[in-house]
Simulated assay, not measured.
Amino acid sequence: MRTLTVSVLLGAAALAFTATAQADADGEAVYNQACMACHMTGAAGAPIRGNAEQWAPRLEKGIETLYDHAINGFNAMPPKGGQMGLSEEQVTAAVDYLVEPTQ
């Protein structure tokens, strides 16, 4: 019963986030709710926001490639960071926010 309750709560939280995220394409807000867990800690090799050394080889491939990887997934990163309810506009806004301090 407890597992079911936790699953229901997590599902409800994900739906609430998706509805909120779809309301605006604020890159920082999307990052804070969908990207921060990995891109703040470096989990699964995710480049950390503000770490120019980690972002340099990625930025060399061009921003369009970063957008594509964020939208469609790349290596350990799932498409749209696992938040399939995000629009492409929201994902690209989050990418812009992620790379902004390194440019």
Rank of each mutant, 00 (worst) to 15 (best):
7 S>L: 13
76 A>D: 06
3 T>M: 01
47 P>A: 10
63 I>H: 03
25 A>W: 04
79 P>Y: 05
73 G>S: 11
23 A>Q: 10
38 C>Y: 03
102 T>F: 05
41 T>Y: 02
96 D>G: 08
12 A>R: 01
89 E>P: 06
66 L>R: 08
21 A>V: 02
11 G>Q: 02
65 T>V: 15
1 M>L: 02
37 A>C: 00
92 T>I: 14
2 R>L: 09
82 G>T: 04
64 E>D: 15
34 A>I: 06
16 A>C: 00
8 V>G: 00
14 A>S: 08
93 A>H: 07
49 R>K: 15
36 M>F: 02
22 Q>E: 01
51 N>I: 05
72 N>W: 01
55 W>I: 10
21 A>S: 11
71 I>W: 06
12 A>L: 13
5 T>I: 13
4 L>C: 01
81 G>D: 03
101 P>H: 05
68 D>M: 12
69 H>N: 15
27 G>T: 11
24 D>K: 08
9 L>M: 07
13 A>P: 00
47 P>V: 08
98 L>E: 14
80 K>G: 06
56 A>E: 14
74 F>I: 07
91 V>R: 07
96 D>E: 14
51 N>Q: 09
59 L>P: 02
36 M>V: 13
47 P>E: 08
83 Q>T: 13
4 L>A: 13
74 F>W: 13
31 Y>F: 15
78 P>M: 13
98 L>C: 15
102 T>Y: 05
84 M>I: 15
24 D>H: 12
27 G>L: 10
38 C>H: 03
5 T>R: 12
33 Q>V: 06
21 A>C: 13
61 K>N: 14
62 G>T: 09
12 A>K: 01
99 V>K: 12
7 S>M: 12
64 E>I: 02
15 L>G: 04
96 D>R: 12
43 A>Y: 10
63 I>M: 12
23 A>W: 01
47 P>H: 07
64 E>T: 13
18 T>K: 01
92 T>N: 10
55 W>E: 11
31 Y>S: 11
81 G>A: 12
93 A>S: 14
50 G>T: 07
70 A>M: 12
79 P>W: 04
69 H>L: 13
11 G>A: 10
80 K>C: 06
75 N>L: 14
14 A>H: 02
63 I>Q: 14
62 G>Y: 06
93 A>Y: 04
64 E>V: 08
90 Q>G: 15
51 N>K: 11
71 I>C: 06
49 R>F: 04
13 A>T: 03
59 L>W: 01
20 T>E: 04
26 D>K: 03
31 Y>V: 11
19 A>G: 07
98 L>Q: 14
39 H>K: 13
79 P>A: 10
102 T>S: 14
31 Y>Q: 09
79 P>N: 09
55 W>M: 14
97 Y>W: 15
13 A>L: 11
34 A>P: 02
18 T>L: 04
28 E>G: 14
25 A>L: 03
3 T>P: 00
58 R>I: 15
6 V>K: 03
20 T>M: 05
29 A>C: 00
81 G>N: 05
68 D>V: 01
39 H>P: 02
3 T>W: 01
79 P>R: 07
52 A>Y: 00
54 Q>L: 09
31 Y>W: 12
